[in-house]
Design a protein around this nucleic acid. Structure first.
Lengths: 159, 159
DNA sequence: CTTATTAGTTGTATCGTCGAACCATGTTGG
DNA sequence: CCAACATGGTTCGACGATACAACTAATAAG
C-alpha cells in the first residue's frame, strides 16, 4: 500500500469513529414516540413501512441481521401490536410481515422524530456543503455495500 | 422547515443508516488480533495508545461513555493485562490509566487490523473522490460534535 | 469540622446480537 | 412415492454494550 493510501485509511477511520461517538451511535438508545421504542424495533418498523409486506428473511437481509435476531424483534413488534405475522398461501414456511394500523401510526411518529434529529444535524452543516456531504455518504455506502460484512471481514468492523 | 431541507434530512438519514448497516456498525463484534477483543475495549486501548495516560473520567469523555461503563471496560482491560491502574500522587481519587507493554503491543495489532479494514473500504472508492469523502465526514463530525448528544437529544439517536 | 463536590465502583436493568440446535414445510432424485 | 436435502423460522444460551442509581473514598469549601 502506498503511503498516501495508508494516511487516507487512517484519516477515514478516525472520521468514522469520531462520527459514531459524536452522534451517539454507540448508545443502545430508546427512541421517544409516546412509548419508548428500542432502536432495533424502530429500524424494522421503518423498513416495513417503506417497502410493504416482507418475509422475515428479506427483512433480515435489509437490516443485515441474523434470522434469529429478526425473529425476536418481530415477536416484540407483534406483542406491541404493530406488526402481524401472516401465512398467506403459497409456501407455508414463509412468514409475511405487515404493519397494523397502529404500526403505521407508530412508524409515522418515529419517522418524524428521526427527521427532527437529522434536521438538527443538517442545520449545523453550511447549506452549500450539504449536497456534497450527502453525495459523499452515498459513495461511502456504495463502497461498504460492495463488500458486505461477511463472516471473515466482519471481525475487524467498527474499530 | 423548507421542503428542500426536509428532503435533505431524509436523504441524510437514509445514507447514514444505510452506512451503519452496510459497514456492520450494528454488530457487537469482536476484533480479531490473536485473541478476539470486544470493540469497546479496542476503542479504549486505541485512545490510551494515542494520548498517553488518562484518568477514567477523561477517557469516558473521549469515548462518550458513562463513568460506570468506563470502569467496567477498564477492569476488563486490566484483567487482560493490557492496562494498569495507578494512583500516582496528588489527588488520591484519580485513577491513571496506562498501557502495559502487552497493551501497547495489542494496540499496535489492533491498529493494523483496523487500518486494513478501512483500506479495503477506501479501495472501493474511486481515488479522485477520496479526499472529498474524508472532507465530508469531517464536516459531519463537526456538525454532530457541536451538538453533543445530551440527555434530551439523545433519545432520538440512531434511528 | 461539617458540608459539599468529585472520581470511581458495584448492582440492576435493558438492549442488541450471534450461533447452534431444532422443527416444520418444500423440493428433488431414485 | 418416499428418502434425502434445502429453506424459513423459532428457541436457547451466551456475551457485549450501555445507562442509571446507590454507594464509598478522597478532596475542597464554608
Amino acid at each position: 500500500m502506498l503511503e498516501d493510501e495508508l494516511d487516507q485509511a487512517v484519516a477515514l477511520q478516525g472520521r468514522i469513529t469520531a462520527f459514531v461517538r459524536a452522534f451517539g451511535l454507540h448508545q443502545p438508545d430508546r427512541t421517544p414516540c409516546g412509548t419508548p421504542v428500542p432502536s432495533s424495533e424502530a429500524h424494522a418498523v421503518g423498513e416495513l413501512d417503506r417497502d410493504g409486506p416482507l418475509t422475515q428473511t428479506v427483512l433480515g437481509e435489509r437490516l443485515r441481521l441474523e434470522k434469529s435476531t429478526v425473529s425476536r424483534i418481530v415477536s416484540q413488534l407483534t406483542s406491541r401490536g404493530w406488526v402481524c405475522r401472516a401465512n398467506r398461501g403459497g409456501d407455508g414456511r414463509l412468514v409475511w410481515l405487515e404493519l397494523t394500523p397502529d404500526g403505521r401510526r407508530a412508524a409515522g411518529e418515529l419517522a418524524v422524530a428521526r427527521a427532527a434529529r437529522f434536521a438538527d444535524l443538517l442545520r449545523n452543516i453550511p447549506a452549500e456543503q450539504r449536497p456534497a456531504v450527502i453525495e459523499a455518504l452515498t459513495t461511502l455506502v456504495d463502497a461498504a455495500g460492495g463488500q458486505p460484512a461477511t463472516a471473515e471481514v466482519r471481525g475487524a468492523a467498527r474499530d
